[in-house]
């Protein structure tokens, strides 16, 4: 059985203009000890789907799922209060912006000790010792001294290390990292990614990595979900997604980034247009309007997920036998 199993998750937000269908029926799983990447552009539903699972949504959100199971527990059945007990202890979260996700009025020590004391019910002194150990694990030098300092005394990379320390303080089974390195410089990003990689191996934690950077995915993850317009358009191992992508959006993503090794001035191939409006999402495939291979059927009926291998699935009409191999030859 998988650590996290989600069936047909839907999240909508009520706003003045109507209902924003941010996540439109997605199903996926996270295995024990693996790291799963979720890519997609802003507004494709990557963050909202993870926040939905943790029930961390604002008042105007509506959540539906056929089935959400985490570590043998049915999350559909438990209320917000019980969920809060699991957050921090069994599910850890790292946010994008380390500048605004730490409390500026509390010392780093207070912020690490707090979840440990709440979830593990140990003495102040023991919790402080544990906090020092954790700061050592995330490679913050002279942790005894750092514990007494405030967030403004830390650099961006150091703050993100503190965030990771808080997230792993109770040995969570699942770590959700929402663009953990987007706000950081490349050299610091490399340090943080290496750290997360080591932690994953050491602690056997599963990681869900939300990012828009395919480079981060290729370096960190075992499997990838590609999201577009609130749906999963393709899913596979990193090799399947990078070397045998089947969905035109995945092709577009891979082709639109320059690589350092390619010579200069080779024209980039952008994806034309912009993402769909999720208040009135298209009836068929959400990518139709931007897809150069779009057929009549794409506008009318949403494509079904087609299984290509045990791990590889894609939702695109091009793979239908009647699509006569319109774009089967496309290589990336």
């Amino acid at each position: 059985m998988h650590l996290l199993q989600v069936q047909n998750l839907r999240t909508t937000f009520r706003i003045d203009a109507g209902q924003v269908q941010a996540v439109r029926g997605i199903s996926f799983y996270v295995k024990k000890g693996e790291s799963l990447g979720i890519v997609g552009e802003s507004g494709s539903g990557k963050s909202v789907s993870m926040l939905s699972i943790m029930k961390l949504l604002p008042q105007n959100a509506e959540l539906q799922a056929d089935h959400v199971q985490f570590n043998g527990q049915d999350l559909n059945q438990i209320d917000q209060k019980e969920m809060r007990k699991m957050l921090g202890s069994e599910i850890g979260m790292i946010f994008q912006d380390p500048m605004s996700s730490l409390n500026p009025l509390l010392t780093i020590g207070d912020q690490i000790v707090e979840p440990i004391r709440i979830h593990q019910k140990i003495s102040k002194e023991a919790a402080r010792k544990k906090a020092i150990d954790i700061l050592r694990i995330v490679e913050i030098p002279s942790p005894e001294k750092r514990l007494k300092q405030y967030p403004h005394e830390f650099s961006g990379g150091m703050r993100q290390r503190v965030m990771i320390a808080i997230a792993i303080s109770c040995n969570p089974k699942l770590l959700i990292a929402d663009e953990p390195t987007t706000a950081l410089d490349v050299t610091i990003q490399a340090q943080i990614l290496d750290l997360m990689h080591d932690l994953k191996n050491k602690m056997q934690t599963s990681i869900v990595m939300i990012t828009h950077d395919l480079g981060v995915i290729a370096n960190m993850c075992n499997r990838v979900l590609v999201m577009y317009g609130g749906t999963i358009v393709e899913e596979g191992t990193i090799r399947e997604i990078f070397y045998q992508p089947k969905h035109p959006y995945t092709w577009g993503l891979i082709k639109s980034i320059p690589t350092v090794s390619t010579g200069k001035r080779e024209k980039l191939i952008p994806i034309p247009g912009s993402p769909p409006d999720l208040i009135a999402p298209p009836k068929g495939c959400p990518f139709t309007a931007r897809c150069e291979y779009a057929m009549k059927i794409c506008e009318k009926i949403p494509p079904q997920q087609i299984t290509l291998s045990e791990t590889h699935r894609a939702a695109c009409w091009l793979m239908h036998p009647k699509a006569s191999g319109v774009a089967k030859e496309v290589t990336v």
């Binding site: 650099s155 490349v186 050299t187 990003q189 340090q191 480079g215 070397y243 891979i254 980034i257 350092v260």
Partner: peptide
């Protein structure tokens, strides 16, 4: 050299082979 090697490569095979130069600390 360090700046370039820190850049995550969007290619799983090459990402596996590449040797990262680790820069310690911050600017």
């Amino acid at each position: 050299q360090a700046l370039l090697s820190a850049l995550p490569i969007a290619d799983p095979d090459r990402a596996e082979q590449s040797e990262r130069i680790h820069l310690q600390g911050d600017v």
